[in-house]
Write a protein that binds this DNA or RNA. Structure first.
Length: 435
RNA sequence: UCCGGAGUAGCUCAAUUGGUAGAGCGGGUGGCUGUUAACCACUAGGUUGGGGGUUCGAGUCCCUCCUCCGGAGCCA
């Protein structure tokens, strides 16, 4: 056991203890030995530090324990914190002793290369690696930045239900569920409820898991993902776009301020992130179609953009691009039609740069009861199930707007990851519900 | 669902025209007082994804099934 006068701390706070005796509780990341001198890379969840053990300092017995350590064994080490340029990270512990908590069995993830399928099968252990650790820290900071931005702008967090009776958008596939002898679904968006909440609390947001039973097999899709959805009363499309771009820019700024170390671990190229600033360039759907046609792409007005189309649009700027005013036919029934051209709806998407594509989608909602009813009927949706939603247009209807931002896509973009599966601790995909 | 690619040791991969399945890492044993994915020596480890076929002989050729990866559609 460590002497009583030794302070327990974490790797994150080592710089506050230079020259002092501390105890660290953690796991073996790696270890090396040159006979009577041992090097132990200790991981404690906040960071990794090198501990130096000499046989003459720790004694025969403790040194024998060190020599028997396996990767990921849990232990406590105590000793003196010293600055040393030879140590990764600049600090190291000159150990006085150690206590083993559990000797780990042969650890499957070795300090060599592995394929993603193997790593995903061992996701519960993979999370301990330096790279995954960095991603989780950035994800945490992104979520915190989102909440800080919205909270400090008088948005109220109101949670919306995960179990819902009907589809928000008719087209998308939902996970069904048996709900006491009737059917129900896992939500694909909190938006309809957000609209009710906005009429009660003005500017609101929900932040929770979202489910889509689409058989998508791409680097941008999960079946369970997290989305933040702000919804603003008395807000039009232009106001909506301004909120969205300010949110995105503030999140990027925060990660640059806080997560320099993590971005370095991830080898993220910083200049493209440092360049992000409001206002983002705007491009109407019609302008985007003209752009595509000008580039020789065979694309007719009225269709939806594919991944390749989005890339071409993205490449016109090193900023995220706000694409707005889409054909009404490809958008949801609740989207407000453009008074200047009723063929198009007041929707907007934000396309992230560097090929990351859509990270935000939203728009102005239809606040007129008759127009909304007409759209409902055109889409063959049940008026009965939407009665409560229609009530919002009967009792003090106002212009309002909102958007959803996909957390995993934002994390993938900011971290520079090739696939969203690494942006969440336990990804759910078409071929994976385990671990 | 469609198109393309891949399944060989615990992991990452190699194996010439069809001719004795190998290496590195990890594991085990021993050595080393400043290592940086440490290094050195020795050692154990295989139904080559499953099934069927061609052949004197199949990891290699043919058929079939399974799984995974990438892309498309759809979307955040």
């Amino acid at each position: 056991m460590a002497p009583a006068d030794v302070t327990a701390t974490t790797v994150r706070h080592l710089d506050e203890h230079t020259g002092a005796a501390v105890r660290l509780d953690g796991w073996v990341y790696n270890s090396r030995s040159s006979g009577k001198l041992g090097f132990l890379m200790l991981r404690d969840g906040t960071g990794i530090v090198q501990c130096v053990l000499s046989k003459k300092d720790v004694g025969e017995e403790a040194f024998a324990v060190f020599e028997g350590l396996t990767q990921e064994s849990s232990l406590s080490v105590w000793g003196t914190v010293q600055q040393d340029d030879r140590a990764p990270g600049g600090y190291e512990i000159h150990a006085d002793g150690l206590t083993l908590h559990q000797l780990a069995e042969n650890y499957p993830i070795t300090p060599k290369e592995h394929g993603t399928a193997f790593l995903m099968d061992h996701r519960h252990l993979w999370l301990r690696s330096r790279r995954q650790h960095a991603i989780m820290l950035v994800r945490h900071e992104i979520i915190r930045a989102i909440r800080d931005f919205l909270d400090s702008n008088d948005f109220i967090l109101v949670d919306t239900p995960i179990i819902t009776p009907n589809a928000v958008e008719g087209t998308t596939t939902l996970f069904g569920l048996d709900y006491f002898d009737r059917s129900a679904f896992l939500t694909q968006s909190g938006q309809l409820y957000n609209e009710a909440n906005a009429m009660a609390l003005r500017n609101v947001y929900c932040f929770g898991p979202t489910f889509r039973a689409e058989k998508s097999k791409t680097r941008r899709h999960l079946t369970e993902f997290w989305m933040v959805e702000p919804e603003m009363a008395y807000c039009d499309l232009e106001g909506n776009m301004q909120w969205a771009e300010k949110l995105v820019a503030s999140v990027v700024q925060r990660v640059l301020e806080v997560n320099g170390e993590q971005l370095k671990v991830l080898e993220r190229n910083l200049p493209p992130l440092e360049a992000i600033k409001v206002p983002f360039p705007r491009m109407s759907y019609t302008e985007a179609v003209e752009l595509l046609n000008g580039k020789g792409v065979d694309f007719e007005w009225g269709g939806d953009f594919g991944g390749g189309d989005e890339t071409i649009i993205s490449e016109t700027s090193d900023q995220p691009i706000l694409v707005h005013r889409f054909p009404a036919a490809i958008k949801a029934f609740y989207m407000k039609l453009d008074a200047d051209d009723p063929r198009q709806a007041l929707g907007m998407d934000i396309l992230a740069p560097e090929g990351y594509g859509e990270i935000v989608g939203g728009g102005q909602r239809e606040e007129d009861l008759d127009k909304l009813l007409k759209r409902l009927r055109e889409e063959n949706l049940s008026e009965e199930t939407y009665q409560w939603y229609l009530d919002l247009r009967r009792y003090g209807s106002v212009p309002h707007s909102g958007f959803g931002m996909g957390i995993e896509r934002v994390v993938a973009w900011i971290c520079g990851l090739p696939h969203v599966r690494e942006t969440i601790a336990f990804p759910r995909m078409i071929n994976r519900v385990e671990p």
